[in-house]
């Protein structure tokens, strides 16, 4: 992963060879413990270091956008699955009664039709990619519960990753501020000593 380069390339004694990452392999940024030591160990001028830091922030932000999109996708998908699941659960509760189910369903936008459904033991589930499969109610219920679980887990991971990314960005922003301020102060002292 190209994002790792920043952290490993930093010429700092405390930089370990093994890169720390979160459970999904997102690299952790390095915190600058002592600015002066950090800069003096680096042969590059301060501007280059700052540029590198900013680049790292940009990379994390890019990842953040990706994860936010994933979050949005999952947040749409999860209610859809649970809605389908409620219908299947309703059908399950009705499967032993002879009483037909009366429904009003949407044919098209603003167009609804009535239908009477005889109690059923199977449903067709739309699996995507133009495929629909017939399942028994029990199987359909299990499948949907499973899917719901998987997606909820995925959402949990995405939220965790987003938190982690935010932490890295915050750390890096503080790094930038400190290196920058250190540089401003250094220049000021240089100026005063040279004018004296």
């Amino acid at each position: 992963m190209s994002e790792t380069r920043q952290a490993t390339d930093k010429p700092n004694s405390s930089a370990e060879a093994v890169l720390e990452t979160n459970p999904r392999g997102i690299p952790k940024v390095q915190f600058v413990e002592n600015v002066e030591e950090f800069i003096s160990k680096s042969s590059a001028p301060v501007e280059v270091t700052l540029g590198k830091f900013q680049e790292t922030v940009a990379k994390y932000k890019f990842m953040e956008i990706n994860f936010l999109n994933r979050k949005k996708g999952l947040e749409l998908k999860i209610p859809e699955i649970s809605k389908t699941l409620t219908v299947v659960e309703y059908l399950v509760s009705k499967q032993d009664s002879d009483e037909p189910i009366e429904t009003t369903f949407e044919l098209n936008d603003t167009l609804w039709a009535n239908a009477t459904i005889k109690s059923t033991k199977t449903v067709n589930l739309w699996l995507g990619a133009n495929v629909m499969l017939e399942y028994t109610l029990q199987e359909a219920k299990e499948l949907l519960e499973n899917k719901l679980d998987t997606n909820q887990n995925a959402l949990k991971n995405v939220l965790e990753d987003l938190e982690f990314l935010r932490e890295q960005v915050t750390t890096m922003e503080v790094n930038i501020a400190r290196v920058y301020n250190w540089d401003v102060k250094r220049r000021r002292t240089l100026k005063t000593t040279s004018t004296v």
Partner: peptide, 13 residues
């Protein structure tokens, strides 16, 4: 009375 109650995407009486 019967009520048309929305379950999922359809109303069920």
């Amino acid at each position: 009375d019967r009520i048309k109650y929305k379950i999922g995407e359809a109303f069920i009486s």
